[in-house]
Amino acid sequence: MSTHDLRFTLNGERREVTVPADRLLIDVLRDDCGATGTKLGCAVGVCGACSVLVDGELQSACLLPAVFVEGRSITTVEGLAKHGELNALQEAFIRDGGFQCGICTPGQLIAATALIAAHPEPSDGDIREWMMGNLCRCTGYYGIERAIKSAANV
């Protein structure tokens, strides 16, 4: 297996890792970078627990070979709070019951960040369409929807 030297930005910090060609982004994040906030659930791109932003685009880190992020910028849940201050979405998830066990929450927050970037005032339909790829077994999604709406002021 060929190995590759990768350079990318993770939550604003520059990172360099050497990986085999088949290494997945989820393993690079969790094992090579120690950024365990992003979770591995189904491992087949269905549950959304591993959602990350690659140059602002929503991706499943469990499917994406790490070599594809060369030179790109990745945002994970660890990159949402700035200078220790929770952002509006994070606050809303706590206040409105957007999580229970918390395992899907990093992915939900990332997906919701992408949603609000695309639709600053999302409709119910926008929320359903964008958040459909992120499974949550605890909340029944009602708390997540409340949190997104309150963070987006809709």
């Binding site: 994070q90 998830f93 999580f99």
Partner: peptide, 8 residues
């Protein structure tokens, strides 16, 4: 809550 929304 804070730990769960920051990945900590």
């Amino acid at each position: 809550g804070r730990d769960k929304v920051t990945g900590a």
